[in-house]
């Protein structure tokens, strides 16, 4: 099964596709943006976007109108991740499986503050269960989006390069883990 088939199959589920979203607002990071998504039916009636986030180009979307905005990325990945509730590990690549689970985890926990709820989340535990091979993917996600990947990195690597005095200093923790990843050849 190729990637496109995996995604196409799953975006038609109805569990999260039950509302319309029509937003227009300025994005401080990417300038003015506009999104129009109408997914009130079980199929995507239309989604318009100019530039798609990397990794999800296979989603059936009309690209001719509309501007990309960060929350649309969240919305889109939320649909994809929530809809992709079961991925067959035999047919999905590690990267695909990780991308879906990571998106789902972000959507499920980004609004939370309690670390035990953020990292005790089932999706997070599923990611850890994928083993050391996801360390580079976690580090890339940490670099790109941030998030509380530190527990997963500690468990998977058996190491903790963050000094005690840096606990809770997210910027420093992130820098330290990325440096660790580069030194061990997990990322460039």
């Amino acid at each position: 099964m190729n990637k496109q088939a995996v995604l196409r199959k799953r975006v038609t589920l109805s569990e999260v596709i039950s509302r319309n979203v029509h937003e227009r607002e300025p994005d401080p990071h990417k300038g003015e943006g506009e999104v129009f998504a109408d997914v009130s039916s079980e199929d995507w009636t239309f989604l318009m976007i100019d530039s798609l986030p990397s990794g999800i180009q296979d989603v059936p979307i009309a690209k001719n109108r509309g501007l990309y905005q960060w929350f649309f990325h969240r919305f889109l990945t939320s649909l994809l991740s929530a809809a992709t509730t079961s991925i067959d590990p035999d047919v999905a690549s590690i990267e695909e499986k990780f991308a879906v689970l990571a998106n789902r985890w972000h959507d499920e926990t980004d609004f939370l503050s309690s670390p035990s709820r953020i990292t005790g989340n089932d999706t997070y535990l599923q990611i850890i269960s994928m083993g050391k091979r996801v360390i580079p993917l976690i580090l890339e996600d940490l670099k790109e989006r941030g998030g509380h990947w530190y527990r997963a990195l500690r468990i998977l690597s058996g190491e903790d390069p963050v000094p005690i005095e840096a606990r809770g200093d997210v910027e420093q923790m992130k820098r330290t883990w990325l440096k660790w990843g580069r030194e061990r050849g997990y990322i460039e």
Binding site: H29, S113, G147, R151, R167, G168, V170, E171, M173
Partner: peptide, 30 residues
């Protein structure tokens, strides 16, 4: 304010904006 990883609600209510604060967690300041 824009989204940020640098602090959480507990810190913000405590008027701190450069720490993720939670008791008893190895990745949080307390």
């Amino acid at each position: 304010s824009p989204s940020s990883d640098n602090y959480n609600c507990i810190a913000w209510a405590y008027e701190v904006s450069n720490k993720w604060m939670w008791p008893g967690d190895p990745d949080c300041y307390w």
